[in-house]
């Protein structure tokens, strides 16, 4: 359980923003791996697949942390 908002130097920042940034970082890594191992050659719509990956990672992290 993390609070909804985190104070950074006295500024309230929604903690979901940090979760989002974290999931973007993870997504970049997963994306690189997918490119390296040719996963994108096997999916129908690589861009949509990638977008869904991001949504899944973000959703999973947010659900885990809240």
């Amino acid at each position: 359980m993390i609070p909804r908002e985190v104070a950074v130097f006295g500024i309230l920042v929604p903690s979901l923003l940090f979760v989002f940034l974290l999931s973007v970082v993870i997504h970049v890594g997963v994306d690189w791996l997918c490119g390296h191992f040719g996963v994108y050659r096997r999916v129908w719509h690589p861009a949509l697949f990638r977008l869904c990956l991001l949504v899944c990672i973000f959703g999973a992290l947010a659900l885990l942390l809240y």
Partner: peptide
């Protein structure tokens, strides 16, 4: 920046 293996 596209999904694919260009970056590698």
């Amino acid at each position: 920046f596209e999904a694919g293996d260009i970056r590698t």
